[in-house]
């Protein structure tokens, strides 16, 4: 299991670096799918098979399909890649890169402080998750249901084709 963890976390980090450096949106999205699948393997190696299945189904399946649909409907292709190449010069990314690297070094130093605890190699089963989810967390489940309903209604309302209404001064 440790080998699986180290291997898949290395793949996840490399794929994520590729995501944030690509110019073409579709290439970035495909690398992001690779990254999500690798993170699903990390979840599996940490003893969370339910979360791994949900990562593959919801993140790599549903959310990425949404992104790819929008990129294809907007026909973002070579022009977007050329524009990204124009925008992503070293003068643009070197400042934020150095700042985030400093932040990462601080977090790593804090996390490498002495008391290291090993992750237990037992699996948290979907049964335990379900019992806790529909027991003590039932209010939160209902609130998440509200949130998803709001998201659906909001997306449908925003995406609806509205009739153009010009101001009366602008009408010919």
């Amino acid at each position: 299991m440790p080998l699986l963890f180290y291997l898949s976390s290395a793949i996840a980090i490399i794929a994520t670096i590729m995501v944030i450096t690509r110019y073409h949106p579709i290439h970035a999205l495909l690398y992001l799918v690779v990254s999500f699948l690798a993170i699903a393997m990390v979840f599996l190696s940490l003893g969370a098979p339910f979360a791994a299945a949900l990562e593959v189904i919801v993140y790599a399946g549903a959310i990425m399909v949404l992104f790819i649909f929008v990129v294809m409907m907007l026909n973002l292709g070579k022009e977007t890649a050329a524009q990204e190449k124009e925008w992503l010069r070293p003068g643009v990314w070197i400042g934020p890169g150095v700042l985030t690297l400093v932040l990462l070094m601080e977090m790593t130093i804090l996390l490498l402080a002495p008391p290291q605890r090993a992750v237990a190699m037992a699996v948290v089963t979907p049964r335990q998750v379900a019992l806790s989810l529909y027991g003590e967390y039932i209010i939160a489940v209902e609130l998440i249901g509200f949130l998803l309903t709001t998201g659906i209604v909001g997306a449908a309302h925003i995406g609806k084709q509205k009739k153009k209404s010009l101001h009366r001064f602008l009408q010919a």
Partner: peptide, 22 residues
């Protein structure tokens, strides 16, 4: 092989978060 330390997982999560932030 040594068992996975919880701090290692947190470092991986921190690296991914920092990449997203960048």
């Amino acid at each position: 092989m040594a068992p996975i330390s919880a701090h290692t997982v947190l470092i991986v999560a921190a690296i991914l978060f920092i990449l997203g932030l960048a």
